[in-house]
Design a protein around this nucleic acid. Sequence first.
DNA 1: TTGTATGCGTTATCAG
DNA 2: CTGATAACGCATACAA
Lengths: 327, 327
Amino acid sequence: MDINQIAQLAGVSRATVSRYLNDGYVSQEKRAAIARVIKETGYVPSQYAKSLRTGKSNVVGVIIPKINSASVSRMVAGMTTILNEAGYQLLLANTDNDESREVSFLRLFGEKNQVDGIILIATVFTPAHEEVLSGLTLPLVVLNQSHPGKSCVYQNNEGALHDITELALKKGTHPAYIGVHEEDTSAGRMSHRGFLDACREAGVEVPDRAQVVTTSTVDTGYMAAEQILHDYPEVDTIVCATDSIAYGTLTCLQEYGHRVPEDIQVTGIGDGDLSQIVSPTLTTVHPYYKTSGIEAAKMLVGLMNDSDTAQRDIRMGYELVVRNSTR
Amino acid sequence: MDINQIAQLAGVSRATVSRYLNDGYVSQEKRAAIARVIKETGYVPSQYAKSLRTGKSNVVGVIIPKINSASVSRMVAGMTTILNEAGYQLLLANTDNDESREVSFLRLFGEKNQVDGIILIATVFTPAHEEVLSGLTLPLVVLNQSHPGKSCVYQNNEGALHDITELALKKGTHPAYIGVHEEDTSAGRMSHRGFLDACREAGVEVPDRAQVVTTSTVDTGYMAAEQILHDYPEVDTIVCATDSIAYGTLTCLQEYGHRVPEDIQVTGIGDGDLSQIVSPTLTTVHPYYKTSGIEAAKMLVGLMNDSDTAQRDIRMGYELVVRNSTR
DNA sequence: TTGTATGCGTTATCAG
DNA sequence: CTGATAACGCATACAA
């Protein structure tokens, strides 16, 4: 069922059918005839052919580290609405936390091929990333990290950790910090800086033994809290870089018989589903993940349409959610 | 950068380059020459043209009700691994729980176009669904629901609820049930049946006021539990159709001063992340979501390759996870 | 307002 | 083993 058959059945040339499908510029009679034939046959134009001819696919490639994650799936949910509205489909590339796959997808999509634009939910930037990123002509938006020279949308981890630490220090005097690795992800670094700034402003000293680095899971959070309890027994406030770590910390404190928040305050970042369910409920920061996906998608649509849209950065806002794990 | 330029640079015809890219059947010398040129130029074949010519896209359409959901994102994670291994990309279509969008995506993908196969994570089957489903020629796998005549992979909700109810009834005598709506989703109906069967086998009577229907959220779970407490005060066991409902129930019981599991047992279905964190930790059923995604993807790959693969159903297994919310 | 002719980049057929 | 050549289904410049 191709455009030629439609043309024949409608008694017009295929160019007219094509115009009917696109610009317009067709007389009422022919328009009606074509419409009727299309309805009868259920004809749908071939995307392949259309894309081959126009060089546009109406598909955007979305590279994600892990679909199976609350923050990522919210971002994807956000961009889906915008992109679909704008007539684009999402081609999903899941790297399963494998950096090399991230680079190869970037390359695959980037090589003048298959997609009209890319959204990269970034984790780390290796030299390989930089290389492929620099030689990229397609519209691209980096989500979740800031990257010089590229349009990006990212969370204000520094501000979030600063504010929540500041809050906790109104009632606490011996804060500890459980963060995530800081080598290649700016998120980790910025978070730590926010914490340290707030401490400095409050005039409290934080010894090294009160600051540990781990990964963002409940189990490792538990272990990190255990370590702090051991190395820094005077602790009365534990600021965690993620909610998952905070959950582990809560469990640990409970098992060691420390009361939260009376003896030790705990804070997280993320406002995960569990945060209002754990006991005590967790004081945390609500990051606008879904909205960041929406913003990234809007930006990309802008880049793909008006090719001269200026590159810009969006640092997302956040909201302190004060619950019962702080005094 | 197209195949003609590569051919010219390598001193061969474009047919030879094409063969190099596909079947093989190229002499060593030419092979080397082409390889060199391709490496130098970074040439990548156009998917559009390839698809137009071959009628295959190496893309499968995945229709999901909501990306932002633990079960769905796990299923997607599972199929991603299999599909990527088999050389397919995922085109994601998120309906955001809008049935009509589900149908239109089905139609869009189905109209001989754009994708080589479809995985539908099903929620409900309306007449509109049936209509488009019946006139579908593309390989399709239905995930999460069973559907006569179509290959499908689904959870054994009936078995899961039966077994967990059976377990709870070893220590309980007055069970209540909080389920989800049963009109159009077989999941809800099957769950309820599993519960009732186990009760019947155990010889316990369950009055209507001990069975309520709600939606699967923490808040509505809370309210449903409240209602049961009011209408059926002698309750000593609450079987919930989902973990979310169970979380709400736990919170409710705690606030009303009922001890779990001493006074009232609670069970869920799903083994969500929170289940080992809430207190008491939740007795639930671990459904193999990720594995079901893997199975669905394998099935679809089979259907797409050997077009004569028999249609079949897979009912997934499950595993009872006994924790501290039951005696 | 409409039709004709051409090309988008591949792969497949068919001789050589 | 290789090279012409003809599609694949569509959009568009150009002529009418």
